[in-house]
Every structure is written in C-alpha cells, then in structure tokens.
Design a protein around this nucleic acid. Structure first.
Length: 430
RNA sequence: UCCUCGGUAGCUCAAUGGUAGAGCGACCGGCUGUUAACCGGUUGGUUGUUGGUUCGAGUCCAGCCCGAGGAGCCA
C-alpha cells in the first residue's frame, strides 16, 4: 500500500492507510497501546487493541521502543480524545529497526546534553516547529524579493580581505595566499546593483568574534538587499514591507508550528507598515528619561536597544547614528555632517537588532578619507573605489539576520535553536 | 578577553566536613482511552581533572579542563 503522509490523514477518514515513520512516544495500558508516531510531516496517535489484530502485530506494538523506525497500517478515525483530532486504529505494524536506549527521553534535559545530541534533538516537536518556521521565513524572504524587482546575486564566501575591516575574520589559505570567510556580501552587491539595479545575496556569514550571548551565532544566514538610486527613506520602506511580509506569511503558513511553540501570535498580527522611527539623537533623550543614560556619540548596547524597543508594539527604526558608530561606507547626513544616513531595525519584546543598513556613500573623496582614517588596506578596496569613479549614484541596502528574525517570530529564548546545526562559541560538534 | 554561575547514576537534580540518594529512563509485572499516563518491583556511581588541608573531602583551598548566562562587538 502506498505511503500516506500524516499531514494528509484528514482526507482518509474511514480508510485503510499506511504510514512510514518513527515512534515518538508510547503509552502502555496493557491490552491497549497508544503509539505516537511522527513521519516528518506531523504526528498522529496510533491505537492498538489486542483483540483487534493478530498476536504478532500486537507483540510488535508492545515491543516497539522510542524512536524505532516503523511502518504501520490501519484505519483513520476522527476522535477528539487524540491530539490533533485524528488517530489510526492499528491493524498491522512492521518494525524497520528496533531502537535501543534512545538518549533523549520525553523528560527534561540540560542544554549541554541537547547540544551534544543536536542530530537527534532535531526530531523533537519544538525543534521540528522552529525549523519549519525557519524554512517558511526564508521562502517568504525570497518570494518577496523575487517578486519586487530584486535579482539574486550570489557573492563569494572566500574573500581577500575584510568587508568592514573591524570585526574578526576566519582566516584560511588560498593557494599560498591568505583568504577569509565572508562577513557580508554587501560590498560586492554595491557593484552588482550598478549592473542590475536591485540585487540581493542570501548566504552564510562568519564572524570570528567571541560573542557568547543568546543573540549570537558564529555562522549565521543573512539576506542583503542592495538598491541603486535608493535613499535612506526608500530603504526603510523596503525594510518594513519585507519584514511585514515575512511575518504575515509565516502567520498564514505556520499556524500549527506557532501553536506548538505557544507563541502569542496577537503580538505579530499587528506588525504591518509603517513602522515607528526615532532618530539616534531623540533616542538618547528618551533613554535619559528611562534612566538608561548614554553620552551622545556612543553606540547602543543591548540594554539600550531593549529599552527603546520596549516602547513600541512594532519593530522600530533607529536612524541617523553618529558617523563614528557606523562603518566607513555610510553616507553622511547632508543636514548634519556628524550623522550618518544609517538605520537599525529593533524587534519588539527584547529581541534586539534584526536589521542593520542605510545609505552608502556615493562620494569617492569621503571613501578615500575614511579608508585612510581607519587604516584599511587601500589596495584591497580599489575595485570598490572604482564604483564611485564610474557612474556613482545614491544607493542603499541592508542586512537582515535570518536566525534573529526566526527567534523573534517563534518567540523563543535562544538563537541556537533556529538553525539545524548551530556554530556557537567553542562548539562545532555535531 | 572580562564578570557571574555550574560540573554527582544514561538524563534532571539532592546530599551541616562523618554510611553517596530521589525522580525519570531501562528491565520485569499489572491495567481497554493515555496525552511527560499511572501502580508495584529490579537495575544503576572513578562525584570533570590534578594537587593540597584534614583522623576523615561530593562538600574546604589552589591550578587546569569543560559548559552555561551576561558584557563588549554585531545580524
């Protein structure tokens, strides 16, 4: 008999079907056995009554252990007593492999143990839900950009030098020369937009920083749209439209997953454009009122971001940071040369920065001066300077962190659960 | 890199400087509606590591290793 996926069982009420999967949990009631079976698409309760099947089949139902692989056949019934509303009345069961001593029991576990067993932890219900949300978020990002005039431009992962100079890079070897794993594809897409107008790259980024917080991964995924002839205001419009689209699509496609995660979705439903905006300088004043005083010119720390974001139900843009807080390529605010045309997007509920971006400078002179001031290796940036020599235009772009966005949408505590195999400080196994 | 907390049974955790324990898991038995089922029984230990103090160290001290949370930096 052909395999039926658990997500489709509602179409088979009263019919005999076959499900191929694994045993998630079992309740032994003597002559009555409840088997919770998962197949990747969902879970269903399988009910085995001793008197309704052969002795061999009931013996197999008794013997099967947690995470054994198995193939079951039976009739689909609608039953309110079953989680999910459907169950399978078992008629036959074939054990593909009888698992012994599966390490992750249905009880509680510590994070060290779970991380060491990440390859198995992925099978657990919450991890299943989170990683399906991740997939939906990525799909939404790509659909939005593909449908709004952006061209995908894959940028290199092996690079000759720092994109931004300051942060720590993973060094490797490239046929006798030093090479580095990319931190960002942005500079390359400042080149591609001069050929294609609007582009984006979507790939992993690597930061060899010794960051050890629930918001950091060493290897994470980032989407970086870049737009020619776009100023800061246009950039923010694209950002708020993209983020709103991601959230609304995820609410539509992942209702079950968000329910498993016990996410309060009412806090996501209202996230539609426009998003609130506050300038850096105004934010400093607000922080002073809130008792989080910070001297003008210093960059926000995590507590400052949380304090600002806590004042809004939607993500909030903080714009026009002092130039000294931001990277060398940021455009200067024509109204105040101390400021940059930059903006970060801070998520609500304490989830922090999910986007950083802004308008890039179009000025050859400013770029040359900044590169000299910050002692960056000018030779490595000659191609980048060419972009200001040959048809420079105002342009903007931003980077959205996939895992931070998924953490926020799922309403979970730690970013490490939003990627199948997280690379965190000091942990590269499995 | 800095600060804080932790490391005891397969897992989660107890244990005034004085006989290393419980729950879960596993195993055996019972139960026809469980939802982390429940009930009875059995099993389970180089207390991270090296040294020190002490009649006696899981417990106190020092170093080291590993992990977690936070800071800085950032998405």
């Amino acid at each position: 008999m052909d395999q039926v996926y658990i997500r489709d069982v509602a179409k088979y009420i009263g019919q005999q079907i076959t499900i191929k999967g694994w045993l998630y949990n079992k309740t032994d009631k003597g002559r009555l056995q409840f088997l919770m079976i998962r197949d990747g698409t969902g879970m269903i309760q399988v009910v085995a009554f001793k008197k309704e099947m052969t002795a061999e089949a009931f013996e197999a139902a008794l013997a099967v252990t947690q995470e054994s692989s198995l193939i079951v056949s039976g009739i689909v019934r609608q039953d309110e007593r079953a989680a999910g509303g459907f169950e399978l009345s078992l008629s036959d069961i074939q054990i593909v492999q009888l698992t012994q001593d599966y390490p992750i029991t249905p009880k509680e576990h510590g994070i060290d143990f779970l991380m060491d067993n990440r390859h198995l932890w992925l099978r657990s219900r919450n991890q299943w839900a989170i990683l399906r949300v991740r997939s939906a978020v990525i799909r939404a990002i790509r659909d939005y950009l593909d449908n709004n005039g952006f061209i995908l431009m894959d940028t290199p992962i092996l690079t000759p030098a720092a994109c931004e100079g300051t942060t720590t890079l993973f060094e490797t070897e490239y046929f006798g020369e030093k090479a580095y794993l990319t931190q960002s594809g942005q500079l390359y897409n400042e080149a591609t937009i001069m050929a294609f107008g609007r582009t984006y790259c979507f790939g992993p980024a690597f930061r060899a920083e010794k960051s050890k917080t629930r918001r950091h991964l060493i290897e994470f995924w980032m989407v970086e749209p870049e737009m020619a002839y776009a100023d800061l205001e246009e950039c923010l419009r694209v950002e708020e439209n993209l983020v709103s689209y991601i959230i609304q699509r995820t609410l539509e496609e992942c209702a079950e997953e968000l329910k498993i995660l016990e996410r309060d979705t009412s806090r996501l439903e209202g996230i539609v454009p426009p998003f609130p905006r506050i300038s850096y300088t105004d934010a400093i004043a607000v922080l002073k009122e809130m008792g989080e005083e910070l001297p003008w010119g210093e960059d926000f720390g995590a507590p400052h971001e949380v304090a600002i974001a806590s004042r809004y139900d939607k993500p909030v843009f903080v714009h026009r940071y002092p130039a000294q807080c931001k990277a060398f390529y940021m455009e200067t605010d024509p109204l105040d040369p101390q400021l940059s045309l930059s903006a970060d997007l801070l998520a609500p509920e304490g989830y922090g920065e999910i986007i950083g971006g802004g308008q890039r400078t179009a000025s050859l002179e400013l770029l040359e001066r900044r590169i000299a001031e910050q002692n960056l290796p000018r030779e490595a940036f000659e191609w980048y300077l060419d972009l200001r020599r040959y048809g420079t235009v105002p342009h903007s772009g931003f980077g959205l962190g996939v895992e931070r966005t998924v953490t926020f949408i799922c309403g979970i505590h730690h970013i490490r659960e939003t990627i199948p195999f997280p690379r965190t400080l000091g942990r590269i196994y499995p």
